[in-house]
Structure formats: C-alpha cells, structure tokens
Design a protein around this nucleic acid. Structure first.
Lengths: 201, 201
DNA sequence: TTACCTATACTTACCGGTAGGTAAGTTGCC
DNA sequence: GGCAACTTACCTACCGGTAAGTATAGGTAA
C-alpha cells in the first residue's frame, strides 16, 4: 500500500484520507448510496474541504477511476510482453490481479464495483474502454497460444478471453465478501489449469 | 412473458405496471439510484398508490426479489432431476438461464444487479441463501459427473461450480449490455464444451 | 522589524431541490 | 354506506453544492 499511496502523486494527507475513504464507501454502498456528508464525516474533514480538493462528487469518482486505471494497466502489459508461454502469462496476470485485490482491497473493491455494477456511475465510458483494452490484451495472449500450438486450434479465443475475465472478476468478488484469504497464486494456477485441461481429465 | 405475468398471482394491471417499471429501473440504476417519484412517474400512478400496494420502497424490492427467486428455482431443480448426463444437465441449466435472461430481460437485469452488485440492497441475505442453494445444486451435478466417470477424478468440483456460475452471470451481463442477441443455446454448448475439453484440444 | 498582501487549506452556515413517506380526501362499484 | 383504489398536498430529513469567513505561512515593501 505504501507504493500505491506514493502513486497518488505526492498528495497531502487530507486529500489522501478523503480519497481512500471515498473509495471504500463507494465500493461498499455504490456511488448513489454514499453522500458527501458521509464521506466528510468519515474523513474527518468538512464537506467544502472535499469540494476544495475534488470539485464535486463526480470529481472524486473520476480521480479514483483514473488513478486505478493508470495503476492497473502497467502490470498486465508488462506480463504480456515477457518471453514466457501463453499459459504462464495467463497464470501470472491472474495472480497479479488476485494479489492486487488482496493487498489493495479497498481500491480493488471500488474497481470491482464499477466493473460489475448496473448502477449509473459517472465516466463509465472511459472505464469501458479500459476493460475492452484489457480483454484485447487477453485475446492476443489466447491467439498467441493457438499460433504457437500451445492451445488447440479448435479453441475459441474470444470465448476463452471472456471466460477468463468472468472467472477472475468472480473470484475477486468472492474474496471481497470473504473473511478468510481465498485468492492465492495456487488458486490462479488451478483455474488456468482447469481452463487448459478441461473437466474430462 | 405471459406465463411470467401470470406468476404474479393474478395481480391487477396497476400493481403489475409498478412492479415491472420498478424492476427495470432498479436494474438500470441500482436500488439507491431510483427514487419513488421516478417509479411513480414512469408507472403513471401517484406515489401513494405505490405505498398502497407495496408499503415502502423496500417492499417493492422485496416482492421483486421473492417473485424472481420462486420463479428461478423450479427450473434448475427440474433439470437436475432428469435422467441425463451431468454434462447435459450443465448445458441445459445454462441454456435455461440464458433463455430466461433473454425473454424476461427486465427481470433478469434486476436479478443480475443483485447478484453482482456491491450496493447495499435490502434483504440481500435472503438472496445469498438462494445463490448458495444454486451453487450447491451445481456442485452436486459436478460431483455426479465425477462419480459416474464422466468428468476426470482430478477435476475440482467446487472450483468448477464456481467457474460455471461466474461465466453464466458474466455472459448474461454481456447480453444485457448488448444490442444484439448474444445468448444462444449454441453458446451455452460451446461454453460447457470448453469447460469440458479445455484449451489444449 | 513591522505591516500588509496573497495564497492555500480549511471552516460554519446556508441554499434550493429532492428523498421516502403520510394525511386527508375523492371516485366508482357493490 | 362501505370499501378498494386511487389522488393532491404536504411533511421532515437529507441531498449536492456554495457563500462568506478564518487561520496560517511566506513574501515584500517601507
């Protein structure tokens, strides 16, 4: 979390406090379920202080969204560019996502909320682009695996990428709801193994 | 939809209208994103009429939830009890869920919203029980498949059931967001086939 | 050194509008 | 007349946001 806090561009303590409180509350209750009054009280600052730093309710949400998108995008790219098997890439990407969700749970909750929600949240089109890019990156890994002969030629890469995203998000969601640690590197391996070998083995 | 409307216990037109409007709005904007005024306006009834029929905002939500849980539970049970292979059961359950989500899209959206959301919605503990029962049913099908030798002894039934749920919900979610028809019986077959055979074929 | 100015970081008190809900009344049917 | 199914008008509390003010630190001119 230390590195992550530094990611917030040298912001001062008050701004960070508001930021993280808002992330937690939005994740927990949804955008419309959280009032500025509540954020104010739980941050121990006055409401206009929040407006001083973020301009509006949407402003907080936007900054949370942008920060998280920046943070998340670098890791998957790096893994996709390494010279390892397609299968190993998938394992590592899933492991990385599990690790982030475990270590940065409030922020991870926030992101999962946006990914899954039907609630009207601001700037959701930006987020959709981000998700599409991520799916494309996965799709390319699946295609790579087919080209190299690692995955069978009959495998449908679109379907596989979609399933990968579904399963990753779902297990992160389970972790968030759980009191004990569910997400492990081993679980990511098991999931990818099951996707790789199927149920008939 | 006709059968489904009849499911609403011979309710009159006004109540049904409120009900379906609320389902749509809750699904679209989340529980906290929808006001009683909005439901009233879009139902073309006054706000106290809603209170006359449902008692409170939570009352609408509860009735939507209960109705949907009753409706959904019978189908999966019936399929699980038929004398077909475990794999076929999975295909049929997924197909059934796809079909429901396509034919009863507003209500399906409502259910998906609850399944996925982190937003605080009323009565969510009831719903969690429902989801747990559904997972258990799937788990039993997977175990059945392993006992009968249909699935490999190395397959982890808990993991497989969890993945099945994740993928089903995810594709229903894609359908809801999409303008064209995604969910087909064929897609359900493909998904189960991929889970069955894996990527290495 | 002192007085003043500016900028930043905060505050209290307040605004207009809307949230969920209710009291009292109306309409139409039996 | 009674009752079910509706209505208008209203209630209190809360919403996102703002105006005006305060406190403090740093800089500058006299």
């Amino acid at each position: 979390m230390e590195n992550f806090q530094k990611k917030l561009k040298g912001e001062n303590d008050t701004k960070l406090q508001i930021f993280l409180t808002a992330a937690r509350l939005f994740a927990e209750k949804g955008y419309n379920g959280v009032s500025m009054r509540e954020i104010s009280e739980l941050s121990n600052v006055s409401k206009p202080t929040i407006y001083y730093y973020f301009g509006s309710k949407e402003g907080i949400f936007r900054e949370l969204l942008e920060t998280g998108m920046e943070y998340g995008v670098a890791f998957s790219r790096k893994i996709a560019e390494t010279d390892i098997s397609a299968k190993m890439k998938l394992v590592k990407i899933m492991q990385q996502q599990f690790r982030i969700s475990y270590e940065h749970s409030e922020f991870s909750k926030f992101f999962l909320m946006i990914f899954l929600t039907s609630e009207h949240t601001p700037f959701v089109e930006d987020f959709k682009k981000h998700v599409r890019a991520h799916k494309k990156l996965l799709l390319n890994i699946f295609k790579e695996g087919i080209s190299s002969g690692e995955f069978g030629a009959g495998a449908n890469p679109d379907l596989a990428a979609e399933m990968f995203v579904a399963v990753t998000g779902h297990f992160i969601s389970l972790q968030i709801k759980s009191k004990r640690k569910i997400l492990t590197d081993k679980l990511a391996e098991e999931i990818v193994e099951l996707l790789f070998k199927g149920l008939n083995e």
